[in-house]
């Protein structure tokens, strides 16, 4: 693991948290350039990077994620952000081949949330913060196709948007794989969406649908 954040206290805390959870943190850096150098020297399984870092303090984290996706597609990138902005999350998912995640900073207070996200990203999965998904699902629409979904179906939809696999949804909702598959099938049919080939592409499809 590599952690990149310009706030030293926060960076050290994240490092300690990951170490406590059994991750091997190989480097902690303060900006995007140092992150790219560190990855170049010793490619980790995943990096945790702050979206806003010096020098411009805007979206250096996203830019770094894009560079990493090009040069080290195997390295998972989890971007921590204070912005509940689907736009950034979409940008991230679109730029990365696999193993990308967009998580709100405050999730660090939730046991397991950060470590779970890091694990999924390291394994090549996509993670979208529930807060971001909730913004998309819950937004006001003139003609809301989501009204056609049952509450459970909406839950499944949100979980798909967060980047969870069918298996993960089973575990979360305490449902059988068959039931989850049926819900997923229903959602796609009702929303007139094509079933995507894999979980990651499913995220993009669902996010794109929710944003449209």
């Amino acid at each position: 693991m590599i952690v990149a954040d310009d706030a030293a206290l926060f960076r050290a805390g994240i490092g300690r948290l990951l170490a406590d959870a059994g991750f091997d943190v190989t480097a902690e850096v303060g900006d995007a350039a140092a992150l790219l150098d560190a990855v170049e020297r010793d490619p980790p399984d995943a990096v945790v990077v702050d979206i806003r870092m010096p020098p411009t303090r805007t979206t250096e984290g996203l830019d770094a994620a894009r560079s990493l996706a090009e040069r080290h597609p195997d390295v998972g990138v989890l971007v921590l952000s204070a912005y509940v902005e689907p736009h950034y999350a979409m940008q991230l998912v679109e730029s990365g081949t696999s193993g990308t995640g967009y998580l709100l900073k405050e999730r660090v207070a939730d046991p397991g949330e950060l470590t779970d996200a890091v694990r999924r990203v390291a394994a090549g999965g996509v993670v979208i913060d529930p807060g971001v998904v909730a913004r998309l699902v819950g937004r006001a629409r003139a003609r809301n196709p989501l009204d056609a979904l049952s509450e459970r179906e909406r839950e499944v939809l949100a979980m798909m948007a967060e980047g969870r696999s069918n298996q993960a949804i089973c575990e979360r909702l305490f449902l059988s794989p068959k039931t989850v598959e049926a819900y997923v099938h229903n959602v796609f049919t009702k929303l007139d969406l094509h079933q995507a080939a894999d979980t990651n592409r499913r995220v993009l499809a669902v996010l794109a649908y929710l944003r449209a």
């Binding site: 706030a7 206290l9 926060f10 805390g13 994240i14 300690r16 948290l17 406590d20 204070a82 900073k105 405050e106 660090v108 207070a109 939730d110 046991p111």
Partner: peptide, 18 residues
């Protein structure tokens, strides 16, 4: 303030796990 609050959350979280 926002960054500091996140750090507080993190510290509390660490204290909790430890």
């Amino acid at each position: 303030a926002q960054q500091r609050l996140v750090t507080v959350a993190l510290a509390l979280r660490l204290a909790r796990t430890q």
